[in-house]
Design a protein around this nucleic acid. Structure first.
Length: 505
RNA sequence: CGGGGAGUAGCUCAGCCUGGUAGAGCGCCAGCUUUGGGAGCUGGAUGUCGCAGGUUCGAAUCCUGUCUCCCCGACCA
């Protein structure tokens, strides 16, 4: 078997493989603070690209950015009962505003606050308070604001990018005059997420609604994009919430309507987080490390000068710079093609494996022999190292945008194949149970996937499956009705159509 | 927060059961060799053995506490 850059491989130990990829690709590392990670430059650049891409889509749909406080007065959180229940158990609370020298030389908190402040786990309440002031009349609506921020949820169990105590995200908060308008907004933003996931991340997603049990605390309806990872588990990659008038009532967002009556606004909220990076890793990375979809890759092309004799150095480097300059003239989806010429004085193998592990879409090797033929030696990250080929620089440069698009398309197609080939319609409990049970319980192999089965709509049936198999309903697809009615996989009562069951992150 | 595993050189880990004052491989540094690709040889540097107490003449090793990481569970983006 070929030696892989990442050990263990996905098949050997998926969770461990994931950790090793994060490390080997230099995306992030653990920090001195429990549950919090340091996002390293290569990983942060991915987040910057996610932000730029999404921000453009938000602006295109009429949204603007603003910033609200990190600290939320405790009483704000208390205003919406379900919301409190949902977040109370994972809040970091600030109770003091000063440090004083303690008896044994250390520092101790002093100056207790009259009212504790909660580090935002999400901002519905503080933004609601603000909107209440902004909104007087129907003329003040809609409010279409997004915030790029960090939030803190004191999680019991953390995992790099997928669940950390502090994470970066985007939260959109909108207020509308009518139910219909808020409803449309909720679905519009879900569609933005779907488009972003598929077109930018090359990560195919299902769209649909969450069941009551999986709903955002305080929301009336929660919609989601749901992706399948390479271990066939589901990842909730983004959510869009229709909040009805719940938060408007809690925060007092009222306005005088066209008829002169005082009414509560209809609000929505929607968000995606640095978890998307975890999704990208588990969708595309392989046993040699990260595989970056070109549209979000920090850099597109790494050029490795192959210098064997000192006298070749000058001419080879000059040709590498020439190649880089030629590539940089091309524009890839609104962004100049980004090229790194890796002149580091480390050995060639380590250098090229370094870029493979980082997942850069294309590696060019350029040595003395290429100078004469004016050509480059090309490796693309979505193919094997055996598929490398040489070609004239001019042709390569002319085709770079098409090449990146081809890689992007390949990654999406590959991910879609994996998902589709591991999605099954299942109509009886024995098959369902077998689908979600590993053959080797001591060392569970990769198994399961998405099961499209009938469900009667009762929380009891959902819960019994979760209790027995750790499988949950990931989403109720919008096209559910198309599959026709059928008997619930658990109780046999008729339901209106199939829903998607899976193990989840 | 419950169960399991682990923290020893930059990295991966051995040593711990049966206490005697720290090792290997990789990486790093130097020299030579090699030269279309994760190189070879020779030499060298590197550790308050996670942290704090305790037992002991003596602790990486035994005991207690504590912190962190990983896996499973409950909870969650």
């Amino acid at each position: 078997m070929e030696k892989t850059a990442i050990e263990p491989t996905r098949a050997e130990n998926y969770p461990d493989w994931y950790q090793q990829v994060v490390k080997a690709a230099e995306l992030a590392e653990t920090s001195a603070v429990r549950g919090c990670m340091v996002i390293k430059p290569w990983g942060y650049a991915v987040w910057e690209n996610i932000r730029t891409g999404l921000d453009g889509l938000f602006k295109a749909t009429g949204h603007v950015n603003a910033y609200f406080p990190l600290f939320i007065p405790l009483r704000f959180l208390e205003q919406e009962a379900e919301h409190v229940d949902g977040f109370a158990k994972e809040c970091a609370v600030v109770t003091h505003h000063r440090l004083e020298a303690g008896p044994d030389g250390g520092l101790v908190p002093a100056g207790e606050l009259e009212e504790p402040l909660v580090v935002r786990p999400t901002s519905e309440t503080i933004i609601g308070e603000t909107y209440a002031k902004w909104v007087q009349s129907y003329r003040d609506l809609p409010i279409l604001v997004n915030q790029w921020a960090n939030v803190v949820r004191w999680e019991m169990r953390t995992r790099m990018f997928l669940r950390t105590a502090e994470f970066l995200w985007q939260e959109g908060h909108t207020a509308h005059e009518t139910r219909e308008e808020a409803w449309e907004e909720t679905l519009q933003m879900l569609e933005v997420y779907r488009q972003f996931a598929e077109e930018y991340m090359a990560m195919p997603v299902l769209t649909g609604e969450k069941t009551e049990g999986e709903r955002f605390p305080g929301a009336v309806h929660t919609f989601c994009i749901e992706a399948m990872m390479q271990d066939r588990k589901a990842l909730q990659a983004g959510t869009s919430h229709f909040l009805g008038q719940n938060f408007a009532k809690a925060s007092g967002i009222q306005f005088q309507s066209r008829e002169g009556k005082l009414e509560y606004a209809w609000t929505t909220s929607w968000g995606v987080s640095t978890r998307l990076i975890g999704g990208m890793i588990m969708t595309h990375a392989d046993d040699d490390g990260m595989v970056m979809p070109p549209r979000l890759a920090p850099s597109h092309v790494a050029i490795l000068p192959i210098i064997r004799k000192p006298e070749d150095e000058e001419t080879v480097l000059a040709f590498c710079e020439k190649a880089a300059a030629a590539l940089r003239q091309h524009v890839y989806h609104g962004r100049g093609v980004e090229v790194v010429v890796d002149k580091r004085d480390v050995n060639a193998g380590e250098k090229s494996w370094g870029w493979i592990k980082k997942g850069i879409p294309v590696v060019l090797e350029i040595g003395p022999r290429d100078l004469a033929s004016h050509s480059v030696f090309v490796y693309r990250r979505d193919k094997t190292r055996k598929d490398r080929y040489g070609m004239p620089l001019e042709d390569f440069a002319r085709g770079i945008v098409a090449l990146l698009d081809d890689i992007q398309g390949n990654l999406l197609a590959r991910a879609r194949d994996l998902r589709d080939s591991n999605t099954r319609e299942i109509d009886d409990m024995d098959t369902f149970r077998a689908f979600f049970t590993p053959e080797d319980k001591e060392r569970p192999e990769i198994h399961g996937g998405f099961a499209r089965s009938h469900w009667c709509g009762r929380a009891d049936c959902e819960k019994s499956i979760n209790d027995a198999l750790s499988v949950t309903i990931r989403c109720i697809p919008f096209d559910r009705e198309k599959t026709g009615p059928g008997p619930c996989i658990v109780c046999g009562r008729e339901g209106p159509g199939r829903v998607v069951f899976a193990k989840a992150y």
